[in-house]
Simulated scan of single mutants.
Amino acid sequence: MTRPAETRQRIISAVLRIIGDDGVAGVTNRRIAQEAGVSLGSVTYHFATQQDLLRASLLHFVDCETRHFGQLARESQGECADLGHVVELVREVANTMPQDSERIAPYELYLHAGRDPELRDAASDCFAAYDKLAATVLTALGVPDAEKVAGAVVGLIMGMKLRALATGSGTDDLVDGLLMLVKGAAEPPRPD
Rank of each mutant, 00 (worst) to 15 (best):
S169T: 15
V137Q: 14
A186S: 14
A166R: 11
T167W: 03
M1F: 14
A135D: 04
A73Y: 08
V62I: 09
I19K: 04
E92C: 00
R31T: 12
S124H: 13
L40H: 10
Q9V: 10
A113G: 07
V87Y: 02
P188S: 15
L174V: 00
G155Y: 01
L111I: 10
G151K: 11
E118F: 04
R67K: 09
V149R: 11
D21F: 02
D172T: 11
I157A: 14
G20R: 04
A134Q: 10
V149F: 12
Q9F: 05
Q99S: 14
R3S: 15
L59G: 07
E79M: 09
R120I: 04
S76I: 00
R74I: 08
T136M: 07
R115C: 05
P144D: 08
I19S: 00
A150P: 07
R120S: 08
R10M: 08
E65N: 09
R31G: 03
A94P: 06
L111G: 15
M97N: 09
G23R: 02
P188F: 06
D63R: 13
G184F: 01
R115S: 13
T139Y: 00
C126I: 02
G177W: 04
P98H: 06
G155Q: 00
P4N: 12
K132L: 14
P144R: 13
V182E: 04
P106V: 09
P144T: 06
A33C: 07
R17F: 07
K183C: 05
G177N: 01
L119I: 08
R120A: 13
V93K: 12
I32H: 00
M158P: 04
M97L: 12
A122D: 07
D52C: 09
Q51I: 04
T2R: 10
E35Y: 01
K132D: 10
R190M: 04
V62Q: 11
L179N: 04
A128F: 12
R115G: 13
A33I: 07
R55Q: 12
P188T: 11
T49P: 00
V93I: 15
A185K: 08
S57V: 06
H46A: 01
A14E: 06
P117V: 01
L72P: 01
Y107D: 06
E88C: 02
P117L: 05
V87L: 13
G142V: 12
M97D: 02
C126H: 10
A122Q: 00
P117S: 05
M1H: 11
V93P: 05
D176N: 10
L119S: 09
L141H: 01
R3F: 13
Q50K: 15
